[in-house]
Amino acid sequence: MIIANKLYLKYPDGTLGLKDVNLVIPSGEVVYITGPSGSGKTSFLKLLMGMESPSDGYLTVLGKDMNNINNRELRRLRRSIGPIFQDFKLLDGRTVYENVIIGMRFLDFSKSEIQNLALATIKRVGLDHKINSIVDNLSYGERQRVAIARAVARRPLLIIADEPTGNLDKDNSLNILDLLKSFKDNNTTVIITTHATHLIEDEQDCIKINVLNGKMSTEEVSYESNC
C-alpha cells in the first residue's frame, strides 16, 4: 500500500516537483499515472523509489515511512520493488539472462529458483530465443522487455514502470501495457506512468491518476482517482 498526504517535493535548485499530493493506492492494483512530460510523474516515482526524499508531507511505501527511512531500510524496500526505468538501465556487455538475474542475486532465492524464475520470465516477455544475446545488440523494444523481465522476475510487491510507452507505436505500446498488467496479482501493485492518455481510455479494473494542468510549472499539480 502507498499513502501520500500533503506530499511536496522541492528540488535543491528550488524547482517544485510535486505539490500537495494526497492519495491512497491499495495493494494488488494496476495504477496509471498520466500527464504530459514535466508534470511530475517521474518525480513521484523517484519518491516511491527513495531516490528523492519528501520536502514536506507524508509518504509511506509498502509500510515504510519515506520521510525517516535509513539506508538499510531503503535497500530492503528497493528489493521489494521492480523498477522499469525510462532508459532501462541495463548492464551493457551482459546477456539477457545475466541482466534478468542481476536483481535476484542478492535476494533470498536459491540458485535453482533464480534460474527457474528468470527462464520463465524471459519466456513470458518473449525473449527466450535471445536469452544468451548481449543486450547491446538488441532492438529498443527487446531491451525494454529485458528491463521488464528484470523488474518482475524477482517477484516484487511493487512494479514501477516509468513511461514504458514513450518511444513505441500504438500497437507495441498496448502490447507492453498488457504485458505489465499481466504481472498484477493480489500482492503485486503495478504503477505505470504515461503521457499517452489515449492508450488507457478503455482500461477497466484499474486506478487512473491524472496529473492535472501538467505544464513545466508544477504549481497546480494534484492527483485524483478516476476509477
Partner: peptide
C-alpha cells in the same frame, strides 16, 4: 558508476 547506480536502485547490499 552507471552499473553501481542501477544495482543500488535494485536494492543490492553495499558489500555485493
Amino acid at each position: 558508476k552507471e552499473q553501481i547506480n542501477t544495482l543500488r536502485l535494485l536494492g543490492a547490499p553495499e558489500y555485493f
